[in-house]
Design a binder for these strands. Structure first.
Lengths: 115, 115
DNA sequence: ATAAAATACCTTGACAGATGAGGTATATCG
DNA sequence: CGATATACCTCATCTGTCAAGGTATTTTAT
């Protein structure tokens, strides 16, 4: 976990929604995917993950169901709703904007003669 | 202000430090620069800005002094310290990493035949 | 002269997201 | 049979943002 989570604050929900855009999944798996996609550089703290699920479900962006009991511990699966998909589109676009803004705001512009 | 500040949460300090890397400045001016560099898309709320100054000063990342009374309302100028410069370097590097992580995490990877 | 707008600063309380610390239960592996 | 991995959960605390409130000076328009 080389990246402090506070620099990603506010993106938890969108990251989860991104995972669910690929199909239903459950907490533990989503976190494993996040870790593997970042080469181990980032992963959710459990409390962060599960409070996010509550928040997203309460907002109608995802729904959940208990997985058919196969082998292993019980799993709660999550499904993204239409509202969730719409919000994901919006947040994705917003990320592009934010990235451009931060690139501009965190760069030392070059000194001009005319300055 | 088309970008919600919560997507920039955690970058306030680094944005301010970036401005001060260019030389001493004061609150109102820093905010004007942020607005102009983002084409009006982003600006600090006053409370956010001034609480950030307190935080940064308490952490020894900036120092402050009242400007010589010229024309206009009184201004409190801020100077970045050596510790501040060091942190700015670190946070700048971190932003590059974070940007790459979020690009990876917010993208729907393409479906492969082998999936 | 005077009212309005712009410049410039400040604090406090409320709110929301992240998380450490605590917990439960099952399955697998040595 | 004990340790580790899987898999879930909650609550109290901490931190950053910001609405709402405030002060004071200068400039601009009437």
């Amino acid at each position: 976990m080389s990246i402090s989570a506070d620099t990603l604050r506010g993106y938890t929900d969108t990251i989860i929604l991104t995972r669910l855009m690929r199909g239903d999944s459950y907490g533990y798996e989503i976190n494993r995917q996040v870790q593997s996609r970042t080469g181990g550089a980032y992963g959710f703290k459990e409390a962060t993950l599960y409070t996010a699920f509550r928040r997203l479900e309460q907002s109608g962006l995802i729904t959940s169901y208990w997985g058919e009991d196969g082998p292993g511990a019980r799993r709660r699966y999550y499904t993204i709703t239409e509202a969730g998909k719409k919000l994901w589109e919006e947040r994705s676009r917003e990320w592009q904007e934010t990235r451009a803004l931060l690139d501009a705001l965190l760069t030392l512009e070059v000194e001009h003669e005319s300055d």
